[in-house]
Simulated scan of single mutants.
Amino acid sequence: MTAAPADLLIERPATTDGPALWRLAKDSKTLDLNSSYSYLLWCRDFAGTSVVARGADGEPVGFVTGYLRPGRPHTLFIWQVAVDPGHQGLGIAARLLDGLTARLAAEHGITEVETTITPGNTASERLFTSFAERHGAGVTREVLLPADLFPDGPHDPEVLYRIGPLTDFTAH
């Protein structure tokens, strides 16, 4: 894998980033695409638990959206991860995930990350298992949402990946 560009700016998203995040999710062709409205609100209400990567022109080339779980404030749930197809394979997703979790460990004391991945999404499986390895954490998996719960047509089950405890937030 080639390294992420050195001039990549990683920061909290702004509401004005919502349209770009929607486009990145749409262009991923693997994420469930939410309404454009939801990306605008996400960038407003969950900017503190999300992150965007900007290319040299200042435009978003990747993002991670997440939230602290109600009732489990030391658990960060990662909702979506997307990287522009022209920027994939550069380690941007890993850099975003590492940066976000390090910030939230310092700000909120998170010790665990959760996400769901559909079976066969090997890119996401690799991203999160390598994240666990980098941070000295274990990974457990269980079906969280079986396919038959989704009312809007065929949908693969969503497998919950629980990663923790997170112990190593040194620079990677």
Rank of each mutant, 00 (worst) to 15 (best):
M1W: 13
T2Y: 11
T2M: 10
A4I: 14
P5C: 02
D7H: 13
E11Y: 06
R12A: 10
P13D: 01
A14H: 08
A14D: 00
A14T: 01
A14P: 04
T16N: 04
T16E: 13
T16V: 11
G18H: 01
P19K: 01
P19H: 00
A20P: 03
A20R: 12
L21W: 06
L21C: 00
W22P: 06
R23E: 13
R23I: 07
L24T: 03
A25D: 14
A25C: 12
D27A: 02
D27C: 00
S28L: 08
L31G: 15
D32M: 15
L33R: 10
L33S: 05
N34R: 12
N34K: 12
S36K: 10
S38H: 11
Y39K: 04
L40R: 08
R44T: 15
V51D: 11
V51P: 07
V52P: 02
R54H: 07
A56T: 04
D57C: 05
G58I: 10
G58K: 03
E59H: 08
E59A: 13
P60S: 04
V61L: 02
V61S: 00
V61K: 00
V64A: 07
T65D: 06
G66L: 03
Y67M: 01
Y67Q: 02
L68N: 04
R72I: 11
P73M: 08
P73H: 08
T75I: 06
F77Y: 14
W79D: 01
Q80N: 12
V81M: 05
V81C: 11
A82I: 10
A82Q: 10
P85Q: 00
H87R: 05
H87Q: 12
Q88T: 07
Q88P: 00
G89A: 02
G89N: 12
L90S: 06
L90H: 09
G91K: 08
G91Q: 11
G91S: 07
L97K: 00
G99Q: 13
L100V: 10
L100W: 01
R103A: 14
R103G: 13
A105M: 03
A106D: 15
E107L: 12
G109R: 03
G109D: 09
I110Q: 02
T111Y: 02
E112P: 03
V113H: 04
T115E: 02
T116S: 09
I117G: 10
T118L: 01
P119I: 04
P119E: 07
P119F: 05
G120S: 13
N121T: 15
T122P: 15
A123C: 14
E125R: 09
L127D: 04
L127E: 03
S130W: 11
S130K: 14
F131W: 10
F131M: 09
A132R: 04
E133L: 12
E133D: 06
R134D: 04
H135F: 09
H135T: 08
V139R: 11
T140Y: 05
T140A: 03
V143T: 14
V143I: 15
L144Y: 09
L145K: 11
P146C: 07
D148I: 12
L149D: 14
L149T: 14
F150A: 01
P151N: 01
D152L: 02
D152Y: 08
P154H: 12
H155A: 13
D156R: 10
R162S: 14
I163A: 00
I163E: 00
I163G: 05
L166E: 01
D168G: 07
A171F: 13
A171W: 13
